[in-house]
Design a protein around this nucleic acid. Sequence first.
DNA 1: ACCCCCTGCGCG
DNA 2: AAAGCGCGCAGGGGGT
Length: 614
Amino acid sequence: MRVAVVPGPGQSGLLRPLGADGSPAGPPVEVPDLVAAVAEYEQKGSTRWVWPSAASCYQVLRRAGVRVARCHDVLLADALLRGRDAGIGVEPTGPRDALALLRDAAAAGAAAGAGADPGLRDTGLRDTGLQDTLFEPALAGAPAPPDPSATLDALIDVHADQLRRIAADEHPARFGLLVNAESAGALVAAEMTAAGLPWRPEVHDALLTELLGPRPTLPGQRPARLADLAGQIAAAFGVPDDRGSRGPRDPRLAMNPDSPTQVLQALAADGIRLPSTRLAVLRDVDHPAIAPLLEYKELARLHSAFGWAWLDTWVRGGRFRPEYLVGGVVSGRWASRGGGALQIPRLLRQAVVADPGWVLVAADAAQLEPRVLAALAGDRAFAAAAAAGDLYAELAVAFGGDRAKAKIAMLSAMYGGAGGEAGQLLAVLRQRFPAAAGYVEAAARAGEEGRVVRSVLGRTCPPPSAGWRALTEEAADPDTERDPGAGRASRARGRFTRNFVVQASAADWALVMLVSLRAGLAKISSVNGTSRLRPAGRPASDDAGSGQPNRLASPELVFFQHDEVIVHCQAEQADAVAAVVSQAADEASRLVFGPTRVAFPLSTAVVACYADAK
DNA sequence: ACCCCCTGCGCG
DNA sequence: AAAGCGCGCAGGGGGT
């Protein structure tokens, strides 16, 4: 059953049950305690909550210890539908004013939720905090929530319109799956933020100290190792160090290794002219400053992006809690906000350590994108290769037994690379695996011609910009001078759409895998009799020492990065979690691709420390 | 003082 | 030997 829900003043809320077509199936109900009302529905049976945005509505429920199984996220569904309709030239339909109202409601809810920062609280029990007034703007300048009754009406209108448009899709079952998975993904995202990734600040700090020297006492000061290297670099160029200690310095002579301009100028003064200071360019240069410069750049990056400042800002109570942006990337991959959550250097995986008595179950989809292409294209020869554990090793047969060549050929096909030997290798690929090569080449042609392409579940890539159209249409006119930029723009879009069909379909698979995994994990916890009211985001060690021996905590999803997931669970649950992970991969393959002989293997590791996962 | 764009590099 | 796709973030450097 679907139930529309919007928060009201204080702890209250407004509910209204809906029929299968989204029309109201009863009068609106005002409940004084929304959290309690939602929890009661969840215990009774399967409810799909229809709300403006899980990112805004669910975080408060989550912090009160309430977990919901299913929802329909109207703003995420709108983004998917609008993307589809823009691609086929359909003007936006449906109630636009109503959508604007829902956006305002979501923004107000998000602002109120942000006011009660989970990172600063050690418990999620709602009766312990005054700040749990559900949707009162907690931040100065936060938008005021619109009238709940008007919001509920708008919600119901927009949702019913969305159900009609989903049903009208070319592939309604697959597109409906995408909308449901995207919505469930928003539940996972909120839960992962609440749970947090276990992070040991003392391990992180020790790593920084070992590599950079002790933490500087003054802000803006270089750590000892960086200062030393900066001195070596300056000396190699025969100029003063930019932070030399005595007297006023002449900035024209200063040497700041963080400045690409200054590095290029200093090298040019020694007769070496380079196009950039990228690692790949510098690596082959013969100059005494290069070795310390390369070391400096590597360590400076660690210091500026994931140094002590990062640790102070993002880690609280042994947890790193980034905000995940579901569907934040055009391809449907997630983005993140805060702390560079999806770009954590592999080195720092050492700081990701399970709580005592707990483990991390880390699972990584192996060679996901080429396998997705195999399943998408239905290429028999390619699918046969993708039935095996090492796809590239199977493909190598076609490339004289050279696995590396097979890999370059695949990557070139998926990314549109054409340099070096890629051309020859692509020709081999085209000959041996015509359907697979044809699939990405058709996508590239569509992009070059300004059309859109869709993922397997129906996520649509953005149409070209007006600027792109102007540029490329002008070039097609025989009376005008040919602009070389037009060809470049056209090919660039071809590479984008070529990659989109693969990356976005891989994101479909990963999203469905993730939400299947979430459902499976919920069953583990109920089998073990776990209370569903265990406060979210509370260090598990607190539970272990709480003198309640009959309680087993729930396994928690704590990280998701495009094609890998981490579950944090008690050690005795590791086998059950690993089995559920494997089932989730099978289920995703079946739901997304139907019957296919392509395998989507996961490499799963049960470890105490993320760095040991592979 | 702030904003914006560029460069460079981390991840998939 | 790198390039070819998608991101977020820090610092430099120029603008206002």
